[in-house]
């Protein structure tokens, strides 16, 4: 009896299992299951769910703790800094996502068409700046954008930039943040896209070549359609992360002598409400806006693509 109970449920005996022993097994196993996930469950509850729920509560109440409906969302939405902050980020996202589609995929396709050993070296070099993500990457780029010390000074000179103040004018920021994001983040995506290309069966590519397709045609007509879901994956994740921009405008603002608004991005605005105005309800309202965007992205990825199959 015992052996029947503990063999795999998919085995033939499993079907002849009596109902009660099946249940017993499930219950016994179930208790163990809870024990295994309990620690993680507590972390998830405390640091994943609770803060979100608490932010939602704050977003719907006044400073005095009364329920105020959508009032905080409307008031923050009407704030003169709200729309510009989202516009800034939208402009940044447009450039960043555009460069992901064109350059990352382009580079991955090129890497895929050259010798494996050589491409491995390129991939590593492209990936390396990822080590400087965050504050370090911004600091490095402040050097790169300062025409007085930059190794690209000739290049910056062509555009007529004489000092850092001119390069980091507010109008240039979306492009600059996109360049920083690309420098630190594109390598990882190139590796992922290359991996996806590698999964394409060789016969398919050979068949296309036999039929007379050149390298460009093979890339566009065969390879691209086959990695479409990876492109979607990359775009949604990059979009979700991009809406959360904080450290880049914060640090560049530090070096701009007050030229750049301290509420450049939505997260900065939320931070500003919390720390400068001590209005946690407004801060929570904007946080919830951003949470909803993040959740929507996750929902699209989970439900619309088949990338995360759980069993």
């Amino acid at each position: 009896m015992k052996s029947v109970v503990s063999t795999d449920a998919q085995s033939p005996q499993g079907t002849t299992d009596s109902l009660s022993s099946k249940l017993r097994r499930k219950r016994k196993n179930g208790v163990a299951g809870y024990a295994f996930v309990s620690g993680y469950f507590i972390l998830l509850a405390l640091f994943g769910v609770a803060p979100a729920v608490y932010a939602i509560c704050l977003a719907f109440t006044s400073t005095g703790g009364h329920f105020v409906g959508l009032s905080n969302f409307i008031k923050t939405g009407e704030d003169f800094r709200f729309i510009p902050a989202f516009e800034n980020v939208a402009e940044y996202l447009l450039i960043w996502l555009g460069s992901l589609v064109v350059i990352v995929i382009g580079l991955a396709l090129m890497l895929h068409s050259i010798a494996r050993k050589v491409s491995a070296a390129f991939r590593f070099v492209f990936y390396l700046p990822g080590a400087l993500a965050g504050a370090a990457s911004v600091l490095v780029w402040l050097f790169m954008l300062d025409p007085t010390v930059s190794p690209w000074r000739l290049f910056l000179g062509v555009f007529g930039f004489q000092n850092l103040g001119q390069t980091i004018l507010p109008g240039h920021l979306p492009l600059i943040f996109a360049i920083i994001a690309f420098w630190a983040g594109a390598g990882g995506w190139i590796v992922v896209t290359y991996g996806a290309l590698n999964n394409i069966p060789n016969e398919l590519i050979e068949a296309a070549e036999l039929d007379g397709a050149g390298p460009l045609q093979t890339a566009i007509r065969i390879k691209l359609p086959l990695i479409k879901k990876w492109i979607t994956f990359m775009l949604i994740l990059a979009f979700a992360a991009g809406t959360q921009l904080f450290v880049e405008p914060q640090l560049v603002g530090e070096a701009s002598l007050g030229l750049i608004s301290p509420t450049w991005s939505p997260n900065e605005l939320a931070y500003y409400f919390a720390f400068q105005n001590n209005n946690f309800n407004y801060a929570a309202a904007i946080s919830v806006d951003l949470l909803v965007i993040g959740l929507l992205c996750a929902a699209v990825l989970v439900f619309r693509t088949k990338l995360f199959e759980v069993e």
């Binding site: 803060p51 608490y54 932010a55 992360a241 997260n267 801060a283 959740l295």
Partner: peptide, 16 residues
């Protein structure tokens, strides 16, 4: 879901 969502989205709620 929580894994896909950018961790930054939870920072201010965590602070609150």
């Amino acid at each position: 879901f929580v894994m896909i969502m950018p961790a930054t989205a939870l920072v201010l709620p965590l602070f609150l």
